[in-house]
């Protein structure tokens, strides 16, 4: 192999490495920096705190989450709240936040891409529902 050929191969290798590195950096940055990811995290934190607040209420209550959640699906269980982007079957990076309920309390139900989302407490049951229209 002559020197010119070796140089060309090495140059091609360097170009490929640069493209791969830049591609990986861009992919990581866009995936982690998406506003939807931030929105999912803040919504999950807010809803977990709302559940804890509802647990503290001695009676029944209905509380609206004051953000448009039409881009997300929300699943509530007795251990955590999970937010998915769009249809929950397609999102590979859902965000969950746990909470601890007193014994005898349950949290359940899910809401799929509704603009207005409410947490409702009835007795010892907390559910996530689409807010009733006024």
């Amino acid at each position: 192999m002559n020197k010119k050929a070796a140089s060309i191969i090495l140059m091609l290798f360097e170009v490929i490495v640069v493209i791969v590195v830049v591609g990986i950096a861009l992919t990581v940055a866009t995936r982690l920096g998406k506003p939807e990811t931030i929105n999912k995290i803040t919504a999950a934190e807010d809803l977990a705190m709302m559940v804890n607040t509802l647990v503290a209420l001695p009676g029944d209550a209905l509380v609206e989450y004051p953000r448009n959640m039409s881009l997300y699906s929300l699943v509530l269980t007795s251990q955590k709240v999970t937010i998915y982007e769009g249809d929950q079957t397609k999102d590979r990076d859902p965000v969950s936040r746990p909470f601890i309920l007193p014994q005898g309390y349950t949290a359940t139900k899910f809401v799929k891409q509704k603009a207005s989302v409410c947490l409702q407490k009835e007795g010892k049951t907390i559910v996530i529902v689409e807010c009733p229209k006024p």
Binding site: I38, E45, M49, N52, A56, P58, P102, K124
Partner: peptide, 27 residues
């Protein structure tokens, strides 16, 4: 950076959790 944007102070979370001790008759 993402963590800084979405951080919630621990004192705020504990304020909501500890409310149950003084307001919920099941506690």
């Amino acid at each position: 950076y993402q963590g800084k944007l979405t951080a919630v102070p621990g004192e705020l979370k504990t304020g909501f959790i500890t409310l149950r001790f003084v307001t919920n008759p099941d506690c």
